[in-house]
Simulated scan of single mutants.
Amino acid sequence: ATQTEKNLFREIIKISGIGPKLALAILSGIGVDDFWAAVRAAETGRLVKLPGIGKKTAERIVIELRDKAGAGGPGDLGMLNASGVTIPASPIAEARAALESLGYKLPEAQKLTDAVHKEGMSTDQIIREALKRAIR
């Protein structure tokens, strides 16, 4: 597991009713960026599709982690490592956050970034290409 996944695991097990086994099931069913995007957008339906997650548990996850997943939070710009230093998220996650701050809805920002993202692109390049695609 990556450090970001470990940090997300620790956040998930802090929620009452979720233990290590369920937290691992969540992490095996969804990526870190996708998890934070679902929490940020309060997409409980997306979380319910994960193994072992019911409607009430999904709602509890969203409520308890929403403030940590907001703009500038771990879901957008990285996670804190064990020593408290912020680890930047992937360029695609940063580009999505930038597009959201420009007024694009999360699903549209995801669609645009996924369409233009190529391995090795910087955040700036992804944003530039996504905006070009949005104009077309």
Rank of each mutant, 00 (worst) to 15 (best):
N81D: 15
N81H: 04
A82G: 08
A82L: 13
S83P: 00
G84Y: 00
G84P: 01
V85P: 09
T86I: 14
T86S: 13
T86H: 11
T86G: 11
T86F: 11
T86Y: 10
I87G: 00
I87Y: 06
P88E: 00
P88T: 01
P88Y: 01
P88I: 00
P88V: 00
P88A: 01
P88R: 02
A89N: 14
A89Q: 08
A89F: 01
A89D: 04
A89I: 02
A89Y: 00
A89G: 06
S90N: 09
S90Q: 14
S90V: 04
P91I: 02
P91D: 06
I92G: 07
I92M: 14
A93M: 07
E94D: 12
E94Q: 15
E94I: 13
E94P: 03
E94F: 11
A95E: 03
A95S: 07
A95M: 06
R96Y: 09
R96D: 02
R96V: 15
R96G: 01
R96T: 09
R96A: 05
A97P: 10
A97H: 05
A97Q: 01
A97Y: 10
A97N: 05
A97W: 07
A98F: 12
A98V: 11
A98I: 11
A98M: 11
A98K: 11
L99R: 02
L99Q: 06
E100P: 07
S101E: 13
S101H: 11
L102N: 04
L102Q: 08
G103A: 03
G103M: 04
G103K: 05
G103I: 06
G103S: 05
Y104M: 06
K105F: 07
K105D: 12
K105M: 11
L106P: 00
L106D: 08
E108Q: 14
E108R: 14
E108G: 04
E108L: 13
E108I: 12
A109F: 08
A109Y: 08
A109C: 06
Q110G: 10
Q110N: 14
Q110Y: 13
Q110V: 15
Q110D: 10
K111T: 08
L112H: 03
L112E: 06
T113S: 12
D114I: 09
D114T: 12
D114S: 15
A115W: 10
A115K: 06
A115I: 09
V116A: 03
V116M: 04
V116E: 03
H117R: 12
H117C: 08
K118P: 05
K118Y: 02
K118F: 07
K118N: 12
M121E: 05
M121V: 02
M121I: 06
S122D: 05
S122E: 04
T123Q: 15
T123D: 07
T123I: 09
T123Y: 10
T123L: 11
D124M: 07
Q125L: 11
I126Y: 02
I126E: 00
I127M: 01
R128E: 12
R128K: 14
R128I: 09
R128V: 09
E129N: 12
E129D: 12
A130G: 06
A130M: 03
A130I: 01
